[in-house]
Amino acid sequence: MQQASTEMVSAVAPIIERWKHEEGPLLPILNGILREFGYVPREVLPAIAEALNLTRAEVYGVVSFYHDYRQNPPGRHVLKLCRAEACQATGGEAVAEKLQKLLGVRFGETAADGSVTLEPVYCLGLCACAPSAMLDGELIGRLDEERAEEIAREVRA
């Protein structure tokens, strides 16, 4: 664990370095860390606080405010499913139910086998081809039950 956290801190050093002299550096740094690790590990917060001359509580306050900043490692795949109105209007809820069953997770959970994390998202801007989803950054429109089954197979593979 100690070693892992040292490695993490050295991995974030260049991200911090890249941004710390810019205006408003905290979000770009956290976004960079999210891209690097898939989550924002608690272990790296002191290094950020120190570099930006903030308290740890301030940095943590920001991390906990934003939905994107997961605080635990996600599964191998991340599936974001839109739950907003346009997707509700096109049967999104039924697909969401189906996917939760197929994947064996509820929203906000990671499958026991570590295959996938399922997260809600409120709008991907694909409202004219709803329901929509994003699987590991890839956009999916007109999501139906058949495609849901494909997704389930894909993340299990």
Binding site: A84, E85, A86, Y122, C123, G125, L126, C127, A128
Partner: peptide, 11 residues
């Protein structure tokens, strides 16, 4: 930030 569901003109 275009957060409203049903909107995508900004995008």
């Amino acid at each position: 930030d275009e957060g409203d569901s049903g909107t995508f003109s900004d995008r």
